[in-house]
Structure formats: C-alpha cells, structure tokens
Design a protein around this nucleic acid. Sequence first.
DNA 1: ACGGTATAAATTATCAGACAATCGCACTGA
DNA 2: TCAGTGCGATTGTCTGATAATTTATACCGT
Lengths: 227, 227
Amino acid sequence: MTAIQRVKIRDVVVDRLKKYITAGCLKPGDRLPNETELAEQFGVSRLSLREATKALELFGIVESKTGVGLTVGTVCLERVTEHLGFHPALQNGSQQQLLDTRVVIEIGALPYTAKRMADDPKVYESLCKRVDEFRQTRDLQKWIELDIAFHRDLLHASGLAPLVAFNDLLQIFFQRFRDSLKKADWMPGIEAHQRIIDALHNQDVALATNELRQHIEYHKERMGAPE
Amino acid sequence: MTAIQRVKIRDVVVDRLKKYITAGCLKPGDRLPNETELAEQFGVSRLSLREATKALELFGIVESKTGVGLTVGTVCLERVTEHLGFHPALQNGSQQQLLDTRVVIEIGALPYTAKRMADDPKVYESLCKRVDEFRQTRDLQKWIELDIAFHRDLLHASGLAPLVAFNDLLQIFFQRFRDSLKKADWMPGIEAHQRIIDALHNQDVALATNELRQHIEYHKERMGAPE
DNA sequence: ACGGTATAAATTATCAGACAATCGCACTGA
DNA sequence: TCAGTGCGATTGTCTGATAATTTATACCGT
C-alpha cells in the first residue's frame, strides 16, 4: 500500500516552467512565449498553465503584464517575507535546527569576512557604524531591525552572496519569537557585536568565532523549549 | 502622473484569504470553506479564487485535496528554499562564491555529524554503504549521482535539515560543471569520501575538516576560471 | 445485528470557449 | 515631422461543464 499522491498538473507545469527558464538561460526581463503557446507546448490547458504562472508570480519568478506578456523575474525575498511574515503557520518544530543552521552559516563566513577586512578598511568602518546606530537606539522594534541588519551586513562582508540569501530566509522563520523577547535580553548583544568585529579587525578569527557562538547561544537559551 | 497599477483581483483575494486566516486565528489543518462559498463570500468568480489559493499553495500557506477541501497548511523552510533558485545571489554568483558557500555549509555541518555518529552507529554504517556503492560503479553518470547523494547524506547526517535544502539548491548550479569533468578526475574522490567519514567516526573533526576541504578544493581547481 | 460493499454526495481538478481590458506599434493625416 | 487613431496581440476574468477523488451513507448478505 503505497501512499501515492496524485501528481497535480500545475506542479508539473511549475517545474517545467522553471526548467524552461534555466535550460534557456533566460535572464530577468526576458520574454516568455504567451500563455496559449506555452500551454500548447506543455500539453495542458491555458488555465492550468495560468495557475502555475500565477503561483510563480507570487514568488516573483515570473511577471505578467496585460497586453505585454510573460517575462522572467527574480525572487524577491522581501516579497516572500511579506507573504510569510504574517506567520499563520510557520513550522516551529525545529527552532533548535534553525539556530544551529544560523551558527554554521555565520561562523563559517567569518574567515572570509576577516580576509576581506584585511583588504578593505571600509568593511570594518561600516560595521562599526552599525554598532553605533545600535547604541543610540532605545526603541525595541528598532533594535530588532538593527540586529537583523547587523548580522546581515556581517554576512554580506564575507562576500558570499548565497549565504546572505540563506540567512534572509532563516530570519523569516525567526521573526516570530523575536517579538517575544524583552528589552533587557538585547542589552548584552551590543557589546558582543562590537567585540566580534574588533576580533575580525585584528584578524583573530578564533576569537570572533567564540564571541559569535556565545552571542547566538545566548539567544538559544531564551528561545529553546518554551513549554 | 502617478504610475497607477491595475489592481488584480487575485492579489486582492490573496490578501483577503490571509486576513481570513489571521482574523479567524486558524491553525494548520483547520478547514476552510469550499471554493464556491469563498468565491461568493469575496464576491469573485471561483476561478479568481482558485488562482489565489493555488498561488498560496506553492508557499504552503493553504493546502487543497481533491474531495476534501481547503485547509490551512504549514510553511516549511524546505518548500520555500526549493523555489529560491531564481534568487539573484545564486543566479549572478560566481562559481568561486558558490564553491566557497558549499565549503562553509559542508564543513560547518561536520561537528554536528560527528556528534550524531557518536550517538548512533547506523549513521556511519549507512555512509560506508554509500562509499561501497561508489566503488562498484564504473558508469560516469552514475558516479555523479552517487557523489551528489553522498554529500547529501553527509549533510543529512548532521541532522540540520535546512543545510540539506541549501545544498540541494547549490547542486543545481554545479550540475553543468560536473558534466564536463573526466572520469579520471573522480577517482581520488572515492577514498577521500572514505577518509572523511572515518575521521568523523573517530571523532576527529579537525581531520575530517581538512579532508573535506581538500576534497572540494580539488574540484575547485578543475572548474575555476575556464575562460 | 453486524460487517463489508456499493452507491451517492461533496469537493477539488481540469478543460473549453468567450469577452473585456490593456499595451505596443504601425499607419495615417495634417 | 509628429501627434492621433485604430488594430492586433496578450493577459484578465467570467460562465459553464465534466472528470477525478474522497467521505459518508445506505444497502445487502450472512
């Protein structure tokens, strides 16, 4: 007794559309065939094709304009956040995994960040500016935004763009219990941020790693196993 | 002259659906009214409502089953990651960046894998089985598949599901380079795989890290800067 | 009376065809 | 030359119908 799930046409069409784009090396802005033609090519009705394109449009992968046609787009994580941010049902079963994943990504990026810091002094300066912003803020909501921005910048400084994207995605799933934290919980984070970038500035990756790990583990205690 | 954008019905429906869910405090698994009823309630045709629900279904926000109806779904990271292949960071990222990202992820997972190996002997055994499969294969295409599978299993053994999803995403972009490799290039990889899991088996994370780094860097030389 | 099976109802999945709205562009007229 | 107009192409939306699937119910045999 195999639990077979009926394969829905639009899921197939979604895959085929994505393959069509990648196989043709199409870039954002490139035109796609019109709906009728694509439907014929895939051997489905226009409606089924539409359901697929409309779904992909929510991600931003394709765009459609009346009177113009379909064009290739790019995933815009802000848009994804917008749709997911209202968190009806984010899977929270593995907060531990999410945090560990963050640790892996952020710590793994540190050596690359240190290398870039050695080459470009502006990297350190801009990060310092972020921390200063932090010190001047009293509003909790603003702090949260700045914290996300700091960790994002820290990753961005590594020069590894994919890691930034992955981190953005993870942040979506963290958003919820961020709100449940108290102001006092965030206090120690400021100086931790400073110590991390200072260690990197001194090319002491090991120290930065320790600081960052402690910094994230600190949050782990506050979030883990609530009930 | 404001750039007015025609408000598309399905976008409105998407918003109203999300509000419907949040306003009712609906949880994953909760039933939604059927399509006809919802369409009537929103004052749109059933088709427009469908386009909205199908789009949300790609996110996992709602689920629909034939003969059952609409239910609130759970959004999981893996599902979103699956469609992230069109993110600019991955589209425009250089091979170098993608490889470095792989290094960060795979090496970062090793400590977790070692820990799980210590707890469960089956982890090591199943990985060994993979390597054995490798030795018995002569077909190049099969080797490529097995290599991907091995690295996937290695990550999976860490217990960090998000990393597996990220890795799957990265593999899409490596696919093209793999095909250009020669059979001889893959030979040393087999024993490297064995050494990695043996080191982990002995709880020697540092050694495993070195082996894995060399293993991936080895490929870097063959792929890097072709033109 | 009970268990299993066949039928019916409810619901989504998919399709076909039509018309409206919108955009781009060529064509025309001054 | 240039502004205006109309036409074709394309997506947006609707109506209606049929197929596929699951759940619940009624029926039948023992």
